[in-house]
Amino acid sequence: MKLLPPRSPIKGSQEMLLIPCPYCGNRPEIEFAYGGEAHVVRAAAPRTVDDTAWTEFLYFRKNPRGDHAERWRHAYGCGRFFNVKRNTYTDQIEASYRIGETLP
């Protein structure tokens, strides 16, 4: 088996993520709440959407091994939502960006 590459911006293998809040800077993971896959957009007029698309929106997720755009909320800090690009295999965070901005 391959050895895993080193984890996250914090040194050492078992520490929590160090998450860069775009408003407050680097903070430990326990200050944040995870918000799932980013850029899952609710249809402007749900009634016009067919069952398949609605089911996809509600329940189906990319769940990739590799780059993942995801929402976090700085719950015990500034309280704001933002997006993070993280590699789900190494847990390395590659970027964080504000809501409304596009994935770098």
Partner: peptide
């Protein structure tokens, strides 16, 4: 852990 991951390990907290 709170987030999607394939790392086969989690954080100590």
């Amino acid at each position: 852990d709170a987030y999607v991951s394939y790392s086969q390990r989690g954080a100590l907290h």
